[in-house]
Design a protein around this nucleic acid. Sequence first.
DNA 1: TATTGTTATACTCTATAACTATA
DNA 2: TATAGTTATAGAGTATAACAATA
Lengths: 158, 158
Amino acid sequence: MTVNETMTDAAESDPLQRLGFLLARHGAVANSRVHHAFETCGLAARQGTTLMLLGTSGSMGQQALAAALEVDPSVLVGILNGLESAGLVERRRDAADRRRHIVAITDEGRCLLAKAQDAVAEVEQGLFADLSPEEITALRGLLAKVRTTPGDPVCTEQ
Amino acid sequence: MTVNETMTDAAESDPLQRLGFLLARHGAVANSRVHHAFETCGLAARQGTTLMLLGTSGSMGQQALAAALEVDPSVLVGILNGLESAGLVERRRDAADRRRHIVAITDEGRCLLAKAQDAVAEVEQGLFADLSPEEITALRGLLAKVRTTPGDPVCTEQ
DNA sequence: TATTGTTATACTCTATAACTATA
DNA sequence: TATAGTTATAGAGTATAACAATA
């Protein structure tokens, strides 16, 4: 049996059982759940992701932040405006290059981040409750083998 | 090691390595690729999915179609208008209940559907080229164990 | 009165390009 | 002239609710 047959056989009965569709659908649900977890903390999805990034890096330039979030720099402005007016992050001028803004997470931001991470962890436990630790490791490994190069266009439309 | 530790340990270094995020991201890429495959056939993503559904069922009422596509009936109108004006599907009044429209795929629709399915299969071969048939089966099985109940809210925002 | 499909309105999101301030 | 960030505009997509036809 070839790889192609493995993927198409199961699709004979229902085209939406195709592996590509399955991955897209389960990914959308996972996204939706994480989205909702952030919202319970009063954060928009990408605001939450931004806090997570800043939580490990401490501070980043807006350029790097936009690249990591895969959003246009002009979109990042809106995300940061919300976070900054809530006192969760700070924009500081880079002394070495006064064009740049260094975005840093505040103590208040770290406090909320902790809650957000708990909420996301809870969502994951709900999503993967029926998988054993071994299966979770296996899923992680298999996802890593899916050919999705970092620079890939990621469209979230349905 | 508990399930929770399995999921959080890998996230210590990079929060975007969390399994929930990974699944969301790979799903988004898969979605994007399928999206693009349909577009090469001149179909919007949900138009393609609609054709796939009609390809196996032959014909469906708009209510059932909207439910299967998880879109509002008013959104389905736009999708079907495009497909019908292109001659790919037909709307017929249900003789038994003249309020209902039965949507049926045309011969022309089946012809384009075949091409679209080839394009999607090609996308899948690209995505899963590094996975053996056994791994593909394993991935399918693991995804099936992810707790995503059918009626789940699926949000595709990033 | 309830239901099927349709239309209309307002709202959100995004992409593009112009703008400013610095280099 | 080029770059970092910001703002403004227009377009697409969506959700909500009103609507006509039929039950």
